[in-house]
Amino acid sequence: MKKLFILSLVLISFLGFSQIVMSSGTQTNRWTFGGGLGLAFGSNSYFNFQVSPRVGYKITEQLEGGIIGNVSWQKDDYYSSTMFGVGPFMNYYFARSFFVGANLQQYFINTKEKFTGYKFDTDETALYLGGGYMQSIGNNAYMQLGVMYNVLWKKNESIFSNGFIPTVGFVVGL
């Protein structure tokens, strides 16, 4: 049920993004849309694909809040894993080129070992705090580069290898 809910949220975000981008050309719209894509390859036939759509609302010209989701598929010679995440975010923009933000994510993870067939399901909450730089790419669209830290991360208790994550994304509507 959790997977279906999160997958539905991701699809609605993409459909909403395509509808708003096609129908709104004015800057009076307070809605923002964007997200990121990730792709990684590594040893032992490692492959990772990630999609992270986001929908926001400009509360003021500098403050934006919204919801972000992500879906990640990983596999290698030994295991495969699917991870869904969803949660609210808040960004504060200053000097039109920088931002600080917070992002609370609830992750649901399903992992399967290929040789034994052992399945492992878990969930984890992450609170990311950080910031970064924004570069205008035209027509109220921006590329965002930054770094976030999960303040809830605990060594040997988390599914993640560390608390830091680099962020690269695109936003339309700022």
Rank of each mutant, 00 (worst) to 15 (best):
T122S: 06
T60M: 08
T116I: 06
N103D: 14
E113G: 13
Q74F: 05
F108K: 00
A40T: 07
G132S: 09
Y78N: 14
L15V: 09
N29R: 14
I12Y: 13
S23V: 06
D77E: 15
Y46P: 07
L37P: 01
G146W: 11
T60V: 04
S72R: 15
M83N: 06
Y79A: 02
D121V: 06
L7H: 12
S45T: 12
S97D: 14
M134V: 10
G34D: 00
K112L: 05
E64P: 04
I67V: 10
L11I: 08
Y92K: 04
D76C: 08
Y142E: 08
I59T: 09
Y118V: 07
S80V: 09
E113N: 15
V55H: 01
P88W: 00
A95E: 15
D123P: 00
G69F: 00
S8M: 02
I20N: 14
G66L: 03
R30K: 13
F14N: 02
S43L: 11
F41R: 13
L11W: 02
W31N: 06
V10E: 08
R30F: 02
T125Y: 10
V86T: 10
T116M: 04
L37Y: 06
F108R: 04
M22D: 10
V100F: 15
N110M: 09
Y107S: 12
F47E: 06
R54I: 06
G25Q: 09
S43R: 15
N110P: 01
G146Q: 00
S8I: 01
G36D: 09
G16K: 08
F89H: 07
N48G: 11
F115A: 14
